Each structure stands twice: as C-alpha cells, then as structure tokens.
Simulated scan of single mutants.
Amino acid sequence: MSKYIFYAPNPTSENRLSEEESFHASRVLRLKSGDQINLLDGQGGRYAALLDQVDSKKTTFTQLSLLEKQAIIPYQIHIYVAPTKQMERMEWMVEKCCEFGIHGIHFFHSRNSERKEIKLNRLEKIAVSALKQSKNLYLPEISPIKPLSTYMDSLVESASTQRLFAHISDPPVENLSKQLIQNKSYHVLIGPEGDFTPTESADLLRANWTPCSLGKSILRTETACIAATMGIHMVHE
C-alpha cells in the first residue's frame, strides 16, 4: 500500500480529491504530478492512482485501478450514545471505534444528558482520519443528536437485528457477550454519565430492548462505547 492515503467517496466517477485532501496533498505532503497514491472510498474499496494535477484546492488523479474490495462482514455494529460534556472524549471514542471497525455512531439526548449539540463535521473528519490510519475500509455513518425516544420507537427488532442497552442494576444483568445472537445487526444504547433514569430503563424494557452488562466496573460513557464495540467483535472471532 502506498504511504500516501486519501479519502475519495466516489473515485470511479470523480477523479479529484476534496479541497481538504487536495490541501493536504499539495501543501502538507508536497506531492507532485506522477506520485502514486492510494484512495479509500469508505465503502470497502481501496484503489491505486497516480496524481495528475496537484493544486491546493483541486488535485486530480488518473490511472485508477481497484486493489481491494473488502467483503461485508456478516454482522453490523451500531452504537447509540448520549454525548458527554467534554467533547474531546467523544472525539476519542469515535476515533477508537472506527479503528476497531463500526458501522454507525449515533447520538441521542435523554434526561441525564450533558450536551445537546455536537460538531458533526469535526467527528466525520476524525472518522475519515481513523479510516486512513487503520486497515478498515468502511466509513461509519455518524448521526446528529436526536431524542432517545426517536430511536426507541424507530428501531424495530427483527430476524436480522438485535437491540440492547447497557444497564447497571443490582443484581447485574447478563454480560453483553452472553446476550448476543451471532451475525445480527446490533443496535446498542449507551447511557449518559448519570445513566438512564429508572423511567427510561423501564420504558426500554417494556419496548423489549435487551439489558446487558459491560462488566463489573462502572465505565465512563466513551469507554463503554469502545468496550461494546470490541466485545461484539470478539464474540465473532
């Protein structure tokens, strides 16, 4: 793989880099016409190409060829999380979940939420950077903040999906790894620092969401997201 890796969502139909990627190629890496690069489309494809015109605002490429098309794994991971007050912790979470491999990171607000706004563009850039750094070829969907009730009502469990929520209780519920049914599309809710309220937990149980434990320790929100993501991957190893 070329050491110069760029994100290009539609390389077969648009032979140019975004303005941000063009600036990076031209001004940061100081690449020249004829230099070999790799392109990731975020949909499982990795391509080789040669730089054509190198400009800080519009860099084009030529001689595109498909190097790899990563197969879609038989399960999906979608994490739903109430963002913390310190956005840096959410940025770190997005980066690490993307490195492990995740299909969607979705934000919600609930009774104990600490934040009602997020910088979606910033998180998307972090996800792209993590995609380029890791060997994962799929860029996850990142969704803006919505009410918890929106996801509770719209996500329907089916033969191909499983809905779970991290639940702190006494006595504790079953661990996530024991609750998982193999090769599903998993939708996992992670509550805010103050956890779900008793009413919210009761509503989730009534709506047939499956409660699960992430271990004996009380985890920070961002740690819980990473633990759930890694836990699901480990079950499928």
Rank of each mutant, 00 (worst) to 15 (best):
E114F: 05
A202T: 11
S110A: 10
L148F: 13
G42K: 01
S158G: 07
P172M: 12
D195M: 01
T60F: 01
E88H: 07
Y47W: 14
S56I: 12
S22T: 08
G45S: 09
L131F: 01
N112V: 10
F165V: 02
L29M: 02
L31R: 14
Q76I: 08
K85L: 00
P171G: 07
I226N: 09
W209N: 05
Y151C: 14
S154R: 06
K32D: 10
M87E: 12
R111A: 14
Q179T: 05
V94M: 07
L64C: 13
R30D: 00
I226V: 13
A227W: 09
C225V: 11
M230N: 11
V235D: 12
A159R: 14
T60L: 09
L40D: 06
E114I: 06
I181G: 12
G191Y: 05
E174L: 06
I145M: 11
K69E: 12
Y75Q: 03
R163V: 02
I232L: 03
D153S: 14
P140M: 00
R115T: 07
S129Q: 14
R16N: 12
S177V: 14
D170T: 07
S13I: 09
H109Y: 15
Y80T: 03
A8C: 13
I190T: 13
T59D: 00
L31F: 01
T59W: 06
I79P: 03
V81I: 15
K85H: 15
S201L: 10
E91I: 02
T199V: 02
Q53A: 06
Q53S: 14
T60H: 09
A159Y: 03
Y80L: 08
M152A: 03
S22V: 12
H187P: 01
A130L: 01
Y7A: 06
L176P: 02
P172L: 00
A48Q: 03
I145T: 01
K69L: 15
I72K: 08
S26R: 04
E68Q: 13
H78W: 08
C98I: 10
R220V: 02
G191R: 03
K116Y: 15
P198Q: 15
T199D: 13
E114V: 13
S110Q: 13
A207K: 09
L204E: 04
S134M: 10
E99V: 09
Q43G: 04
E21D: 14
V81G: 09
L123T: 05
P211F: 05
E141V: 00
L164C: 08
Y80I: 12
P211D: 07
G231W: 00
L155Q: 10
R220S: 08
L123P: 12
K135M: 01
G191H: 11
I72P: 11
E237C: 13
T197W: 11
G42E: 08
M152F: 02
K85N: 08
M234K: 12
R111V: 07
D203R: 14
H187T: 03
E200W: 15
Y75M: 08
R89S: 09
Y75L: 05
N136W: 10
I77P: 01
R115S: 10
T210C: 04
A159V: 01
R220G: 06
G42S: 04
A130N: 06
R46I: 04
A48D: 06
K178F: 13
Q53W: 01
T223F: 05
A166W: 12
